[in-house]
Design a protein around this nucleic acid. Structure first.
Lengths: 351, 351
DNA sequence: CTGAAAGCGCTTACAG
DNA sequence: CTGAAAGCGCTTACAG
């Protein structure tokens, strides 16, 4: 592959001049510039980004360590991150942690070894030593979706509290009183927060959240299935199940179907994270939608700020409830008809 | 960040010795090795991969240019590619072309500039100049899923011909005679091949594939919706629609639903590419499943072979039909009852 | 406006 | 077993 030396020789100038011409440096004569460009053309020269990075100490690359690419929510997040990064002149390298702390660490290490300019991470656990050290060492870093308390890094996430309240109001309004949750890992902020928000919302209606109604999942479909089976085996199964992410909702659907039961007649279901397929599932699934695109964009912008040495802003964007049919229709719940009007406004989706 | 010089100083040896110790070179005294390791530990040293790449002319990185990450099929492919690459000591950088030739070119260029060791691509179009030139210039390269005829590069893909025959047999057996297809872009091999396979399979039953029953899609949901609307507006709409990928099937479901029609009673639906959600859609969708994981693995292995200077093997793995309910159940078709037995064996899924 | 030269952080013959 | 030195392909003060 042609190097800058070859171009210099072809153009009859020094490598310094080639470099300046190609980098838009003002002090290059039009004649020299033209000769350089011609040489580049005939040789099909492309600058070696590796060499450039070594010299400039910048890679124009962002690392994104994500919990699970197969989760449509994260896929979309990754996509929007890449889009915004590209618009800002950066490439992004994605590391898929697959909800495994060891894999997460592998990717953080690899990314750091490659000297990415900044790191976007949605931590799988409470924070690996490598990541914490990188944060302390001043590596530009931003947390997306999940974060690690006590680490001084901007957080870009969505706040689902109000939407969870809307969901509970919706369920309550449909007559549901025994509500259960399939929780995410306690080591993640989203795992904990969604349970907290749910419990708090239930509390507003004087409803308890007994331990038996908190199933420990791991954000993967298999766990949603297992937890749901456990719920159905209870002497008094819940009337409604809230899955803390879309994959666990998929598992819950599997479990209900395997028992020959129906949603929402036998058990209601709702999920955190909305996805296009929820419109077409049987029944369409009521879900809490995050502003995923905006999250990705905001995260990249915050990270680029940090790279530039500025503060970088934490943001929390509100999620919203999208009502479909999986919790029952007004007037046909599996439990007694509603007596209390919904205290919060609820948007009904019109797909 | 500590460099190799710092480690050398700390350990009281030369940088050459540090390098040898860290790279497992045999001729390093145990004492020196121990001092180096200790120094690495106290300094938290990590080798700079950028510098190493410049020197060794290898990045231990694979590029993957994929048509559309948001398509679950490609997401899974990307995941399996990354897994196999990691097992073989490579990282992978994903470029999402989003079915746009210009974006595809952007990523190919960026990846090449970064001097990736090899390139995996699922071409969005007939092949951009940049990609064709890279292939000609001898960049190790492998096509996955889609390929470009006439380019001498190994192809790792799945062969859906038999599965399409099984699908047509299934539809025919259910009494369907007016079969239509939502095709992918003619610029892609998969876009063309699936139509060809479908037409050929219909031919075996003496069934035509009129132009009106070939809708031009682009592998995205929106096009599936538009094409399906067109089918439904026909004086004689098809009784069954085969979507050439899962996203267009999603669009088709949208369109049918928007008209207040039902699958399979009013119109049957089948899709190329199976995804977990198809089990839970209303109705569960009959689909042709590719051995996606195996494709990703085989593609990486072929590429690594090429990188090592060996041939690299083309492979075509068979896809298989997974029957669910979206084409109708035996005995309840929307068209006359079947008279001819299915000529090919058909697997029925048991989810 | 231009070129010679230093240097980014490594690896690797070469010589001892 | 070890070190001094060259060199990978760039960029950028420095001097002219």
């Amino acid at each position: 592959m042609a190097s800058i030396k070859d171009v210099a020789a072809e153009a009859g100038v020094s490598v310094a001049t080639v470099s300046r011409a190609l980098n838009g440096h003002p002090s290059v004569s039009p004649a020299a510039r033209a000769r350089v460009l011609a040489a580049v053309e005939t040789l099909g020269y492309r600058p070696n980004a590796v060499a450039r990075s070594l010299r400039t100490d910048r890679t124009r690359t962002l690392g994104l360590v994500i919990s699970d690419v197969m989760n449509p929510y994260f896929t979309e997040l990754a996509r929007s991150v890449e889009e915004e990064a590209r618009a800002l002149g950066y490439s992004v390298i994605i590391g898929n942690a697959d909800e495994r702390p060891d894999l997460q660490d592998h990717h953080v290490t690899t990314l750091l070894d490659r000297r990415i300019d900044g790191l976007l991470v949605s931590p799988t656990d409470g924070g690996s030593p490598r990541m914490l050290e990188a944060a302390r060492a001043g590596t530009p870093m931003v947390f997306v979706d999940r974060w690690i308390p006590g680490v001084d890094v901007p957080v870009v996430r969505s706040d689902g509290r109000a939407a969870v309240r809307d969901l509970v109001a919706h369920l309550y309004g449909l007559g549901h009183r025994r509500l259960a949750i399939i929780a995410g890992p306690a080591a993640t902020t989203t795992g904990r927060e969604r349970v907290d928000a749910f419990r708090e919302a239930l509390g507003a209606y004087g409803l308890p959240l007994p331990d038996a109604y908190i199933g420990q999942g791991d954000f993967q479909a298999g766990s949603g299935r297992r937890v749901t089976e456990g719920f159905l085996d209870l002497p008094e199964p819940p009337g409604a199940v809230f899955a803390a992410d879309n994959l666990m909702a998929l598992g819950a659907l599997d479990a209900v179907r395997a028992r020959g039961l129906r949603v929402p007649e036998d058990i209601a279901l709702a999920a955190f994270d909305d996805i296009p397929w929820f419109v077409h599932t049987d029944p369409p699934v009521t879900a809490i939608a995050q502003p995923t695109r905006e999250l990705g964009r905001a995260a990249v912008r915050a990270l680029v700020e940090r790279i530039a040495g500025r503060a970088g802003e934490s943001v929390a964007l509100p999620a919203r409830l999208v009502v479909r049919r999986s919790c029952g229709e007004p007037g046909e719940p599996g439990e007694p008809a509603p007596t209390t009007p919904s205290p919060s406004p609820v948007r009904r989706s019109t797909p």
